[in-house]
């Protein structure tokens, strides 16, 4: 079962990058624009964005960074990665992380509920191991599974990128708020994947809680996947209300602070981490409390 999921992930990654390659080759020439033009466009674009009246501080920082990087490139003649390169694909891996979420939710939703439906829960809970330890071992399994899937995603993206696109001789530049520096694309990819992992983590924890409370894997998996897709839409519905700042899905994706795609304008990464931590503690408390106290009649 877990092997099938991992294999599925690899297949989807290869297929996805293969399709990208094919679309690139059928598209018009501007797919392979000169990096200088791209940098120029980046500056012009960011300038426009900075003119926006209701820009928040994190957003302003982000666009200033973009300008600084682009100017540095032009001044020092440092090309960026082309889109159709192994490096850029690896950096963009975080955009494929919803696949990991999907598979991790299937695991998280089933891992407790299936013990109840198989009746094995009574065999498990009559061992000299406290219930919270059993639940913790299951939770760690879910997280490890998600981490392994993320690593598989990164590696298979790199392999597929190598196979379909090859290596670009660009350089990755980052802005730390005061100066521009070089960095490795692997480091950047890992950073973004780790930030995106917050979303995998929260949604699987949610599925794990449902699995523990309702003892039904279909309910846990179904509801979690439904929320995963609709939860983010709800941010846009709620964006004019104060409550959106405390809503889980406003904060699940931490990459928003580094890729500029902010869900709402005035949030900071610190605030997101606090909100996520509170949700996490609530989910865990509910899971442990119900699992620890429940009378097993299965």
């Amino acid at each position: 079962m877990t092997w099938i999921m991992a294999a599925l992930l690899v297949v989807v990654v290869f297929a996805g990058i293969g399709i990208t390659k094919w679309m690139n080759s059928t598209a018009t020439e501007n797919a392979n624009e000169n990096w200088r033009d791209i940098a120029q466009a980046e500056i012009a674009n960011s300038m426009v964005m900075l003119e926006e009246p209701d820009l928040s501080e994190p957003q302003a920082d982000y666009y200033e960074g973009r300008i600084a990087i682009a100017e540095h490139r032009l001044a020092n003649d440092i090309p960026s990665f082309e889109y159709a390169s192994m490096q850029q694909q690896v950096i963009d891996t975080h955009m494929m992380m919803s696949l990991v979420t999907l598979l991790a939710v299937i695991m998280a939703g089933g891992i407790v509920a299936s013990e109840f439906s198989q009746g094995t829960i009574k065999m498990l809970l009559t061992r000299p191991v406290k219930r919270w330890k059993i639940l913790t071992s299951k939770y760690i399994t879910v997280l490890l599974f998600a981490v392994v899937l993320t690593v598989i995603l990164l590696i298979s993206t790199a392999l597929a990128g190598l196979l379909f696109f090859g290596i670009s001789d660009g350089t990755l530049l980052v802005w730390n708020g005061s100066e521009v520096s070089e960095t490795s694309f692997w480091l950047e990819a890992l950073k973004l994947a780790a930030l995106k992992f917050s979303s995998v983590w929260m949604i699987s924890t949610f599925a794990f809680m449902l699995s523990t409370v309702f003892r039904s894997s279909s309910l846990a998996i179904g509801l979690s996947i439904f929320l995963m897709f609709t939860g983010i839409q709800a941010v846009f519905l709620l964006q004019n209300y104060e409550i959106v700042k405390y809503y889980l899905f406003t904060h699940t994706d931490l990459t928003q602070f580094f890729t500029g795609n902010f869900m709402i304008s005035d949030i900071t990464i610190q605030m997101s981490i606090v909100v996520l931590a509170v949700y996490f503690l609530v989910f865990m408390a509910i899971s442990y409390w119900t699992f620890g106290r429940r009378d097993i009649t299965a």
Binding site: Q118, G119, T120, K122, M123, T126, P128
Partner: peptide, 20 residues
């Protein structure tokens, strides 16, 4: 003391359900 006491007990509750 759940762990201390249960380690001395062997149990079959109704049908023994195993991982099939």
């Amino acid at each position: 003391d759940f762990e201390g006491s249960i380690q001395k007990v062997g149990v079959i509750v109704e049908n023994p359900e195993m991982y099939k």
